[in-house]
């Protein structure tokens, strides 16, 4: 009897959607609530892992054709460049700026460079976690 994963597949689709949404929530909520780049990134990674678990590497790769090593490197680069950008303004390295702006739709919104930094963190975490897992699974 061949394995059939219909149940798993259908549930996974929903679950991954929930996980990704939640990850984004965690990521953006990080500044004020528990969460942030790490956790956001890691939960995205776990969502991706779930995808790999239920489907297989080939299928997922076809749908998400990304080199995750570069994602990781790119993430770290972003983080460093947000830090290094302060060098150009004669501010100390990693100086994070934040401010409150009145945006048309969102109303009074806080924008911080820290978010950009966090994006880097998240990307690095996602990239690394997926790289590791994929590398191991591809080894035969």
């Amino acid at each position: 009897m061949k394995p059939n994963d219909v149940i798993l597949h259908s549930v996974t689709k929903v679950a991954v959607f929930i996980i990704l949404t939640f990850s984004i929530y965690l990521f953006f909520g990080g500044h004020h609530n528990p969460g942030g780049g790490f956790i956001g990134g890691l939960s995205v990674a776990s969502g991706l892992v779930l995808l790999y678990l239920t489907f297989d590497i080939e299928t997922v790769r076809r749908n998400i054709p990304v080199d995750f090593k570069k994602v990781a490197a790119f993430g770290v680069l972003i983080a460093i460049f947000t830090g290094a950008s302060s060098l150009f303004f004669d501010k100390p390295f990693l100086n994070q700026a934040f401010g409150y702006f009145n945006l048309p739709i969102f109303g009074k919104t806080e924008l911080a460079t820290a978010v950009l930094f966090d994006v880097g963190v998240a990307l690095a975490v996602i990239g690394t976690a997926v790289t590791i897992i994929l590398s191991i699974s591809e080894d035969g």
């Binding site: 570069k70 990781a72 490197a73 770290v76 290094a84 004669d90 100390p92 390295f93």
Partner: peptide, 22 residues
């Protein structure tokens, strides 16, 4: 404050990361 101090730490990192990408 002297931003030069940080450079030895981050120059190699940036270079290394660029190499990872290319």
């Amino acid at each position: 404050m002297n931003n030069t101090v940080i450079l030895p730490m981050i120059i190699p990192v940036i270079a290394g990361l660029i190499m990872v990408i290319f």
